[in-house]
Amino acid sequence: MSPGHSPELAILNPTSFFSRRPRLGLAHLLVFWLCVFGLSFAALGCHTIAPMRPVGIDQFSPEKDVLVFHISIEEPSTPRSYRDWAQAQLDLVGGEPRNRRYPEIPIYEVTYRFRVSREMVAEVTFRRGDDGEGALEHAQTVVRAVPEWLIKEESP
């Protein structure tokens, strides 16, 4: 350490740090980060959620201005992905889906029900404002608790 060098600066100066313990510092840092990542993965159970893969879509029109879609998917997904997928479907038709039997009536409410093996896992609803005007907007997404048997085991 050079004379007159402030002790605090010496500690904070990276060159002086590495000059004292060059290899050990890097190795420690590497091991530390590996441990952190390793523990994080262990805590999360290394579970990866696959992107949603619809295997079938059915449309129902219980009312003239209400549409309900039943979407069969292979396995449950994350809460936001249901909303995002439904929003993307709505965007595909310019946010204005139509009931084929009553094309002249604007749709008031659209619901997407997601099912895995006939078990409903989530429901996303878009609705116009209380005055019935404006664009269809996300009203709510309700994600049901997924039964254990619906969660596929990852093959080793």
């Binding site: 029109s61 219980p62 009312e63 003239k64 201005d65 209400v66 039997r101 009553y102 009536i105 604007p106 008031y108 409410e109 116009r128 209380d130 005055d131 019935g132 005007e133």
Partner: peptide, 11 residues
């Protein structure tokens, strides 16, 4: 089937 939009029935 009917129209459920409250705006329709109000206005």
């Amino acid at each position: 089937p009917t129209v459920v939009n409250p705006g329709f029935w109000r206005n």
